[in-house]
């Protein structure tokens, strides 16, 4: 576990030594702030609804952008070979990277607490929906990050990793929106597999274990796929 945390620290440091972390945090805050501010000042509505409706869209782009380099760049530069010949297990390496992205995303999510504070002062804060929304955002970020890492492990080209990661999470996001066009039995399955469907559930303020379990199993599945890809020791 100690090694995993060491790697997490290194990854976080790489994010914060370069512009990546600051760009992500400030742009995330700017976009969500724009929607929150619009509702607040133009429509006189002090609500987190606008934040929770835009944040999943932003994650679609941001999370693959944060994960695209993680394995692809290490493969390209050859440092992956050094990393995987250290006395650590492959899963510890993946866990270290997943943890660092998750911490960065949690920080981004935490920054939106300013809006929550504003709402609690100016209006009525729906505590259930707020907690559900935050939990949903966190789980969504975790799932996307795990998928993004897998995409990054498949190639040595960061751009390819980004597009691949984005394509996967985008399809996952859209799944519950196409249920009208498919037979109803398939619709049920697609709905269950849709990432946004479970987010909307959590947003209602009811924390159902099925929704939480969905995100955790998706994360675990992508994690497993990454382990499998790395075990094949790509060149």
């Amino acid at each position: 576990m100690h090694e995993t945390w060491t790697l997490t620290q290194r990854e976080l440091r790489a994010y914060f030594d370069g512009p990546a972390a600051y760009v992500v945090l400030s742009v995330f805050l700017a976009i969500t702030g724009w929607f929150f501010g619009n509702a607040l000042f133009l429509q006189n509505v002090a609500s987190l609804r606008s934040v929770f409706s835009i944040a999943p869209f932003v994650f679609l782009f941001f999370v693959p952008a944060l994960t695209m380099a993680s394995f692809a760049e290490e493969r390209r530069s050859g440092t992956l070979e050094l990393l995987l010949t250290l006395p650590v297990r492959d899963w510890q390496v993946i866990a270290g990277k997943l943890l660092s992205v998750t911490i960065l995303l949690s920080l981004a999510i935490a920054l939106t607490l300013i809006y929550t504070l504003t709402v609690s002062i100016l209006g009525d804060l729906d505590l259930g929906a707020t907690i559900g929304g935050y939990l949903g955002l966190f789980l969504l970020g975790l799932t996307y990050a795990s998928i993004g890492l897998w995409a990054s492990s498949l190639t040595r080209n960061q751009i390819v990793a980004f597009i691949l990661g984005f394509a996967i999470v985008f399809v996952l996001f859209l799944l519950d929106k196409v249920t009208d066009f498919v037979p109803s039995w398939l619709g049920v399955i697609l709905q269950y597999l849709g990432a946004d469907y479970h987010f909307q559930n959590l947003l209602r303020g009811v924390i159902d274990t099925r929704d939480v379990l969905y995100y955790l199993s998706m994360t675990a599945f992508a994690f497993f796929l990454t382990t499998y890809t790395l075990a094949r020791r790509p060149e």
Binding site: A14, G78, T79, E81, L82, T85, P87
Partner: peptide, 17 residues
């Protein structure tokens, strides 16, 4: 791996560190 020190070909290093 604990017994071995390894320098791969073309010396990959974390160049941003």
């Amino acid at each position: 791996r604990e017994q071995i020190g390894y320098l791969p070909e073309s010396t990959p290093l974390y160049s941003d560190m």
